[in-house]
Design a protein around this nucleic acid. Structure first.
Lengths: 396, 396
DNA sequence: TTCGTTAGTAAAGGTTACTAACAATCAAAG
DNA sequence: CTTTGATTGTTAGTAACCTTTACTAACGAA
């Protein structure tokens, strides 16, 4: 068994991956019965989790980490190796007493993930990543003026190009879409793309034959921040672009809300002193203060650097005012901003942090860290990849 | 087996319950390995859940509801009957084809729960309930001027009196305490009682020998609303009294926050137009608008009924302003108020609801229901009872 | 070499839930 | 009244799972 990690040809492994599609989703959820088979699946996921987070573990290490016996772990690992999800790296190098350990790792390069970001203006972007979220290929598609069914076709086209470029079996497809998306991957409403009650997830799954997961772009970004950005378990991610959206991770899990509309903070009115009129009809929505087009215009209209700073500080203050009640009610550990660095990082960020500090009980029980994301423009596609990792392998 | 549900003397059953203490907690959490024994425990809980929610089910009904086979259900039920947690009610009355079913139920009167509410001014209240949350006995203790260790002794005294009055084995003790309480039941900070870093849960467990669970009063209230008040899975409960606190249930689970301080909204500043100075040093905290002493004073100072209405409407508006960002970010399904009806119900509630509606995107994707709780003054003790039910039986 | 330690495997055992089969019981159709 | 079909709950046997116990392999230290 020591040298069994035989790699297979892409085609065959791909077929196997497809047929194995249903074996992957396997975390025991509260509320569902536990048969022995489900218990085994759950334990399999625990092993994968542990391997995913820290590579270079032996079977014995896994046994200690997971709490199962070495015997059981060996059995589970044999299964995972047979499924090509885990590989043996070889003998541990460092010198210790006892038999040297055989190190294991998730087969990080053995599968690919296809991830899409539909939230850009007039542009769909997509990537192929490995299981670590390392971007291997990029594609993009101009969709100026494309809406409705044509936009769905555009997604399909982009997807097909990415699938063709993947040189490993595809674990699944993740999509971050603008608008309100329910947990079945149906886009309930995305005005910019002309979508309403569109079952995008099912449509794409049918067309590609691959497992597909669709979620809101800001929610996906929040997942990326949790898994790849080192965010805490209670984190709010705020995405500032054409509009303002957010994604919320509580206890390490994404919050979807009563009507799948969690994170829709762009059209909440800020403060009690009016403001500009918003496209939605209300006055003083967060978007009127923060949406990049308006913010950009105000910053450029400023007479000098000090004026520009004042504009940005005011925007940051508005953000802080709006977020403070959320920080207080949820006792958030972290607030992360995603968007153009030139406008957000610096004055605006500092102003928002200071406003939150001064309007909540930050002093007495530790206010949240407020910072920019380090994931840059790939945050949504990375989040889409996390959706696949979590949905297919249970890993995050 | 048909008539086996033999009831035992209280003393014996009580000893058995104590020795069984550790067998009760049994829901499979993600992140923990699943041994066959744990899987069994999990399935046991599912059966209890189902029986708890709808009494009068047969073994076959349970099999259909839970998804296990009749054989397995029979086995699990036999276990539960042996533990005195489930009883047979007799043969189903209504006429259907086939062998008549034997109806089962949780032994609702067979165990007692002791629940305390420490959040009143100068008063500790406590109750004994059955498993349905029906209050069987009440006790209270004046604690004017009592703080620190003396207050802990007072809790012990009240607890002892309640334990003495219970006429069934005690499943556990739940406590709703003011202040910030971590998930180990340590009161990190409760200024009014002079408590700081006080391990109340461990102290009481040691003194009584019973399982004890301690949580913040508003958080307990939120649990009560979820289980007994018919609240949705994403609900914010706001408690307005001396101060203003809240409890948040997301996806059916209580949110505790990064530093166990979730729900502390009383000292979040509202609006951008000043306000009264708060005891905390800030200006325009939610408490300065809504805390009952201040609100009462303003309402009484009003010259006429219209003036009083204006005062209440303004307070409701401030509540709505503060809550709107939370509603938007979480897409809450329900906002529930708990506190004195004469001030809150009516004008203030309507004003808050209208403010939330007008400041969020309530129209497009369904705003939250805003209402008063129906659980009255017992809401905290009922929540404490829910904590015991959930912690010991996994039921909610 | 001997001892103690660690890694991984093998065999046996106990627990769990499943399938298959059956007895008990009743309504409804003939 | 008898037969048929449906439903409940139990018994017996089986497959899957994890554990305990015991073993071999491999290594450092004395």
């Amino acid at each position: 068994m020591t040298q069994q990690g035989t790699r297979q040809g892409t085609g065959l492994a791909s077929e196997r991956a497809a047929s194995r599609q249903h074996r992957f989703a396997s975390v025991v959820r509260a509320g569902a019965r536990v048969t022995p088979e489900r218990a085994r699946s759950h334990n399999r996921v625990l092993v994968l989790q542990e391997l995913y987070r820290s590579e270079g573990l032996s079977r014995a290490d896994l046994a200690r980490a997971v709490g199962l016996t070495r015997v059981t772990i060996s059995d589970l690992v044999a299964d995972l190796i047979a499924d090509d999800l885990v590989i043996e790296l070889g003998i541990r190098a460092d010198a210790r007493p006892g038999k040297p350990a055989t190190l294991l790792d998730i087969n990080r390069a053995g599968f690919a993930i296809v991830a899409l970001d539909l939230s850009y203006l007039n542009l769909f972007r997509g990537v192929v990543t490995d299981l670590d979220g390392t971007v291997l290929h990029r594609e993009q598609l101009d969709v100026t003026g494309v809406t409705g069914a044509a936009a769905v076709d555009a997604v399909s086209d982009l997807l097909a190009r990415l699938v063709a470029r993947a040189d490993a079996p595809i674990l699944g497809v993740g999509v971050g879409s603008p608008g309100i998306v329910d947990d079945a991957g149906t886009v309930l409403s995305a005005p910019n793309l002309g979508w309403a009650d569109l079952p995008l997830q099912d449509t794409l799954a049918e067309r590609t034959g691959l497992p597909v997961l669709v979620a809101n772009d800001a929610n996906a970004a929040a997942l990326a921040e949790r898994t790849f950005g080192g965010a805490e378990d209670d984190t709010l991610l705020i995405r500032i672009g054409r509009g303002v959206g957010s994604g919320l991770v509580i206890g390490g899990r994404l919050v979807r809300g009563a009507h799948s509309a969690a994170g829709e903070i762009g059209h909440v009115v800020v403060g009690t002193d009016g403001g500009e009129v918003c496209a939605c009809g209300k006055t003083g929505c967060l978007e009127t203060w923060l949406a990049i087009p308006r913010l950009q215009a105000r910053a450029q209209a400023a007479p000098d650097a000090a004026g520009r700073d004042a504009v940005l500080a005011a925007a940051g203050e508005r953000l802080g005012i709006s977020i403070s009640p959320v920080v207080g009610a949820l006792n958030l550990g972290e607030v992360v901003l995603s968007g153009p660095l030139d406008l957000l990082d610096g004055t605006l960020l500092d102003s928002a942090a200071e406003t939150i500090r001064s309007r909540t009980m930050a002093d007495s029980h530790g206010g949240p860290a407020v910072r920019m994301t380090t994931l840059g423009r790939d945050i949504v596609v990375l989040g889409a990849a996390v959706m696949v990792l979590t949905g297919q392998l249970g890993v995050f």
